[in-house]
Amino acid sequence: MKLKRINTSEIIWLIGIIIMILIILFPIFVMFKYSISDRASVVTGGKPIPLWPYHPTIEQFKTLVTTDRFISAALCSIEVALTSVIISLIIGTPAAYALVRYRFPGIMVLATLLISVRLFPDIVSVVPVVEIFIKLRLINTKIGVALAHSLLSIPYVIFIAMGVFETIPKDLDEQAQIMGASKLYSFVRVILPVALPGLAAAAIYVFLLSWDEFIFAYFILAFGNLSTLPVMLQKILSWTPQHNLLAAISVMLSIPVIIFTFIVQKYMRAGATAGAVK
């Protein structure tokens, strides 16, 4: 009797797992399937679209990597992402160090305030930001997008870097200072090198955030010639392109994210679950 009950609960569990996996994998499968579909498997003329293309092909990718439009969008994405990584690390890391090492009244309030800036809805801030950027002539520029992206990513950098600096013993900077190093010197030459691996995770996180950010990039680049990859996807959506081309760009856009997400998963988990356990 008891054995049977365990079995039913286990069967329900197994069915649950299978359904979840199917729901999670089906859209991803569809994306990859479309990206390697030949024309006949997409434009079927009334017949249902096959679950596996009649003639799998990498034609789309070949066309993409020779299309100027795609290359310039990809380069623009990379440039914007790298710029925002540099800006947000330069501004965020020292702040995180100060927030961890110095304990004066109100500093935790300040830390919470700085980190919770990320809760401010981006769709609310996008119109004022664009209006300001128009006046500053930052509209339709890469640096404009990078500045907006660092606004989003600095809170994350502060959060991740605070975690990194907390793991470094305080003795280390004290010893450096006893030996005569200035505070700046001990931070730059002693602490930063130790913190580098953790900060690399922050850098990857910022890169990804900028790489797939859409709202700011779209509003800032909407009417110009420049576009990042997500903006390019949206722009070509308006002239009803073939689905396999859309899927191929989607794959190119996702692959770096998928790879790096699993590298920095440990840190992302910490970021996503912050505050959940008290």
Binding site: Y34, W211, L253, S254
Partner: peptide
């Protein structure tokens, strides 16, 4: 492995998810 699989949607950019659903 199953856990990593469950995290997979987080690794697909929102805009890409939207485009896939647009196609599906």
């Amino acid at each position: 492995i199953i856990r990593s699989l469950f995290i997979l949607p987080l690794a697909i950019p929102s805009i890409v998810t939207a485009i896939i659903l647009y196609i599906m």
